[in-house]
Structure formats: C-alpha cells, structure tokens
C-alpha cells in the first residue's frame, strides 16, 4: 500500500510541477518563440516550457475562462490590455515584444502580387485569418478595404494565420495574408504590404502568474539574445522600454 501511495504522490507532484511554464502564443509567433524557448532551456535545462498556439482572440477567451496559462503573447495590444483591465494578469507586465509585418504570399513563384492583381481577381480565393479574432486577419481586412478590392473576389477565412498559411501552402487557396515571419524563407511569391495601409501590428504580452520562473523567462524575451531571435524572424522590435 505504502509504495502505491508514494507513487501516487510522485505522480501528483509531477502533474503540479511548479517548474513548468505554460505559454499561450498567437499563431504567427509560434516559430520564433520555439527558438527562444530552446535557447532559454540551454541556460535553464530544469525548466519545462509548453506552448499553446491559437489565434489571439481565442486565447484571450480561454484566459477569461480560467485557462491555466502563465504567460500570454498576443498579436495585438488590445487583448493584453483588456485582460490587465479585467484583473486577469499583472497590470504592469504588459509590454510590446515585437512589431509584425503583414504580407500577401503565394507558394507559386514568379507571381507579381500587387494591388491590381488582387483587385482583378486573377488570384483567388485569397485566404485571411478571421478578422474578429486574429489581428493579422483584421489588418488584412483593412488592406482589402483600403485597396477597394471588390466583393466578387472570393475570400476564405481561416482560424488564425497558421491555418491561413496552410490553406495557401496546400494549394487550396491561391494566396494568403500571413505574417512576414511565416514565409520569409519559404520561396514562392510575396508582397510586403506597405505599413501605411494598415494599423500597426504591435504585439504585446502579459504575464498572468506572478512567479520567479515565469518572470525569468519573460525577461529573457526582452534580452539581447531574445530580441536577436525575434529580429531574425522578420519582426521589428520597438525600443520603448
């Protein structure tokens, strides 16, 4: 009996491992974050870090319903601020970690992706992330409106930029609005959309749990090493703070 109880306690303590950091991350930033986590774990091999990847809106909704995340890396500044206002995180922890760039991308090479091509319907359907939940989708919606792309051009709505990319990559959609970081090394055709055409995508994060382990990793995100990885993935870092 006694060994059994011991085993049970061991399992429980492993389950309630305080050293495990659970991060909710917007789909566009999953790749750079994985690299940052790998780098961080070389310095702190005893800390376990797990990622949950989804759209910013979905993750914010999960956090409002008590999802046990320690850190939330959103693709906008709206959600982290809302959560802070609702008392769901450490209010002083909201910080911008990256500025994202929106691109229109197609796996087909030597396409001349530009406003005229988009308006003419020569490439269709065009995928974008759900504007209601995904900041990159919202930015794409702004671009479509700004360019006066007619309603006759079919659009396909993805859950987040990850699925938007998947729709184009599989060939099911002709092109997709995605984050520059997702496709900068993917070949194909790419139109880096002028930043004046959409409201800036300021990606902010919020720390949800006050613990030294979480703070340690969060600070690493803003260290020179962390920033180098972020820049290397095609983001800009704002030097405020």
């Amino acid at each position: 009996m006694r060994p059994l109880i011991g085993l049970l306690l061991l399992a429980l303590s492993a389950w309630a491992n305080a050293d495990r950091i659970q991060i909710a991350v917007a789909a566009n930033f999953a790749e750079p974050l994985r690299e940052i986590v790998a780098q961080y774990r070389q310095l702190h091999p005893d800390i376990d870090i797990a990622l949950t990847v989804a759209s910013t809106g979905k993750l914010a909704a999960q956090i409002r319903h008590g999802a046990p995340y320690d850190l939330f890396l959103a693709a906008d500044s709206r959600r982290p601020r809302e959560l802070a206002r609702e008392g769901l995180g450490l209010p002083d922890s909201v910080r911008s970690y990256a500025r994202g760039l929106l691109v229109l991308w197609s796996p087909q090479s030597d396409l001349m992706l530009d406003p005229d091509m988009l308006r003419s319907g020569a490439i269709q359907p065009v995928a974008l992330a759900n504007p209601r939940t995904a900041p990159y989708g919202l930015a794409a919606r702004f671009v479509l409106d700004d360019l006066a792309v007619p309603d006759s051009v079919p659009l396909v709505q993805a859950e987040n930029v990850g699925q938007s990319y998947h729709f184009a990559h599989s060939g099911a959609a002709a092109a997709a609005f995605v984050a520059y970081s997702q496709v900068r090394e993917q070949g194909g055709s790419l139109w880096l959309i002028p930043e004046a055409r959409y409201p800036a995508i300021i990606q902010q994060a919020i720390q949800l749990i006050d613990s030294p382990e979480v703070s340690g990793f969060y600070q690493f995100l803003f260290s020179d090493e962390g920033r180098a990885i972020i820049i290397n993935h095609g983001y800009q870092v704002t030097d405020a703070e």
């Binding site: 809106g57 979905k58 359907p125 995928a127 209601r132 939940t133 396909v156 709505q157 993805a158």
Partner: peptide, 26 residues
C-alpha cells in the same frame, strides 16, 4: 468543415462554425 470550409457566408459557414466564431470573438 472547419478544416476545408473557409467560413464563407451562405456557402460554407455552417451553424456549428458560426457558433464557434461567436465564442472565439467573445
């Protein structure tokens, strides 16, 4: 449907997906 539909109103946005999007958007 979520994986092959693309949520086009009147074409591929079915009720279950519409509900899911309401929940996601709060």
């Amino acid at each position: 449907v979520l994986m092959i539909g693309g949520s086009l109103p009147g074409e591929t946005r079915v009720a279950s997906v519409a509900l899911y999007e309401h929940v996601e958007a709060g």
